[in-house]
């Protein structure tokens, strides 16, 4: 395997550090940058996020990062808000997003919000979920969700079934936080890194 050059996209969001720490625990040194050339040159790109959709999209657009991300051809992993921003549209702030996944992000209207805590993964498929047992638990914190759709590669149930993870070509995404999901999350990150 060619040497891994992992980039974590830096933008106005929280928890970027958590992703970096999680990778370091796996012995991987990632570069945290908002520089378009560095992002394009990476062998893998992680697009993490805790934050608000409209403000984040505005931040990305102002720096041209929306176009950069959309055109990436190497494996990309969107996490939480990152996954939501990869969709067409989010009800959070009525935001036009990146349009990588042709689907929309909705607000939870039943159950306690945010959906916070450990939930089981079901119907997992694809390379991110290699070597995981059935019904593995992962950690979620979110108030908006993506219903199941043709890109869904894992689901969880909160009132209804929703997309825990999605994939379209080289774009992977998880609604949960692998960086906070114990050994299950570590395996998922390892799986992404070894793609």
């Amino acid at each position: 395997m060619q040497e891994n050059n992992i980039v974590i996209i830096k933008y106005n969001a929280g928890n970027i550090r958590s992703v970096d720490f999680a990778l370091r625990r796996l012995g991987i040194n990632a570069e945290i940058t908002g520089d378009s050339d560095r992002i394009r040159a990476a062998s893998k790109v992680i697009f993490p996020g805790v934050g608000e959709a409209s403000g984040t999209m505005e931040y990305l657009r102002l720096r041209g990062l929306d176009v950069v991300i959309r055109r990436l051809t190497q494996p990309v992993l969107g996490i939480c808000l990152g996954m939501q921003l990869m969709c067409n549209f989010s009800e959070e702030g009525d935001t036009e997003c990146l349009g990588i996944f042709d689907t929309s992000v909705l607000k939870f209207i039943t159950g306690k919000v945010p959906h916070m805590g450990w939930n089981a993964l079901e119907n997992t498929k694809g390379p991110l979920f290699r070597k995981l047992g059935r019904g593995s638990y992962v950690y979620y914190v979110h108030s908006y969700y993506i219903p199941e759709n043709k890109y869904t590669t894992a689901s969880s149930i909160y009132s209804d079934r929703f997309s825990g993870a999605m994939q379209h070509d080289n774009f992977f995404a998880t609604q949960f936080h692998p960086e906070k999901s114990g050994s299950t999350g570590e395996q998922i990150l390892k799986n992404f890194i070894s793609l």
């Binding site: 550090r17 958590s18 720490f21 999680a22 625990r25 906070k180 999901s181 114990g182």
Partner: peptide
């Protein structure tokens, strides 16, 4: 944050928004 792979909450002495920001930045 560096050593533990599950979520954690920190409390005590958060009096201003800057305190919250510092804790978020620390992980």
């Amino acid at each position: 944050a560096e050593n533990i792979n599950i979520p954690f909450t920190v409390g005590g002495g958060v009096n201003h928004i800057q305190d919250a920001d510092a804790l978020l930045s620390a992980g």
